[in-house]
Design a protein around this nucleic acid. Structure first.
Lengths: 226, 226
DNA sequence: CTAGGTTTCAAACGAACGTTTGATTCAAAC
DNA sequence: GTTTGAATCAAACGTTCGTTTGAAACCTAG
């Protein structure tokens, strides 16, 4: 069977098997990791048949890609929209804190607002550290435009730094964001209960404070070794 | 007999089976992830028999714990030693940049100096995001003292911030460090070749700059919502 | 009502996994 | 030379996995 096209029809899908599979997969991928989340567990959680995964997504890998793409597309589009709102046009220098907020806030708002957003954030952190070439290509594909546009904007906002400086600081920003978004719920056991339950607005403010400070930090002398 | 020339059967290799297993496991855990790194691949890489893992470590889980503990113990001991060297005694306030360096530098130096250090860093990032309760308990056990001592020191160095503020910033610091240490090698493809090959001293300086800036960043107003 | 495409279902396949077993090898100690 | 315990080995165990299959159920046009 030439596979036909199991692709989606734009027609009405009330709460179909496909979406139920994506929801269940997202949750189980986050809680157990992709390799340990079996299709049997996923389909059972979704109330679907085992073969439904291969019918709708072709393979487990296809399911992984679909879970990532479903949220990453809208999320990064939101980031780019907010970035555009920060840009004072050519010649102007954007406000660094506004750039950081445009990058960080959509992630944490998604965690707060969308059902399963928390699990998705955990899954993305895991996907970052996953070594599979295929997953990495997908991630670069999804994030490519965001990386380019934000590093451009930061380069204009921080003219005192080289392009390489900006790239590394962008990288550090992604790290603290990914870690906080994916593992923020660990702050309580880590701090032995000394931190309050996770409040997304609160964490956003703290994270923007931290990252903006890091972005604006003076660079220490280096010249000697280069 | 079965293995060809018995004379050249030289387990007289520089290291024993146990260490060879740890090396091979560390590498494969980092490159493929724990679930995808089969004991068959590990023992084959190590030149050992399949059953050797269960003889020396009891189970695959035991091997994971051993791989983590082998390096995390010395690493965190080094961090605590450097922290002690920063401490000006009770009443004094430590230098924030020195605290950050004491926390960050040992990791990156391990990556640079020890064979397999790079793979280990990647593995630790993965272990952080691994959802298994057992792995998480082991991590908290390994890092517990470091967390307590460093957050104490930062609280003294940054008296303008609440204990909760300090905890969150410490958390963000761990995120950017873990991300940079585990995925620093990705900076080239991500930056489309615009960054130089990874130089550990260089990255250390950049990371300490960034984190110190984040630690010292002024906190934005909040009071209203609380 | 019927035809045809879409979606679901139970069942099975082959492969790969972690683990166990019991015999075998090796190096000292007696 | 014999004993003893640690270490290694080939082989197999039972389980679980992703995937495939072919038929049944469903829905919507004609």
């Amino acid at each position: 069977m030439a596979a036909g096209s199991p692709a989606s029809r734009p027609s009405s899908a009330p709460e179909g098997t496909r979406e139920a599979l994506l929801d269940a997969a997202e949750d189980l991928f986050a809680r157990k990791g992709v390799p340990r989340a079996s299709l049997r567990a996923i389909t059972q959680t979704a109330g679907a048949n085992l073969a439904a995964v291969h019918y709708h997504f072709g393979s487990k890998e296809g399911l992984v890609r679909a879970v990532l793409s479903r949220r990453l597309g809208p999320l990064n589009r939101e980031r780019l929209a907010r970035l555009a709102a920060c840009d004072p046009g050519p010649g102007g220098t954007p406000e660094p804190r506004a750039l950081v907020t445009a990058f960080v806030a959509p992630v944490l708002e998604m965690i707060q607002r969308q059902r399963g957003g928390h699990a998705f954030a955990q899954f993305v952190l895991r996907a970052f550290s996953e070594p599979g070439e295929e997953t990495r290509e997908l991630m670069l594909e999804e994030f490519g435009e965001v990386i380019e546009r934000f590093t451009d904007a930061f380069a204009r906002a921080l003219p005192q730094f080289s392009r390489e400086d900006v790239f590394w600081r962008y990288f550090f920003m992604v790290g603290s964001l990914a870690f906080a978004a994916g593992l923020g719920f660990l702050i309580r056991p880590i701090s032995a209960g000394r931190c309050n339950p996770l409040d997304v607005d609160d964490v956003t403010r703290r994270l923007v404070d931290f990252i903006t400070g890091g972005m604006l930090a003076p660079g220490s002398a280096e010249a000697a070794t280069r």
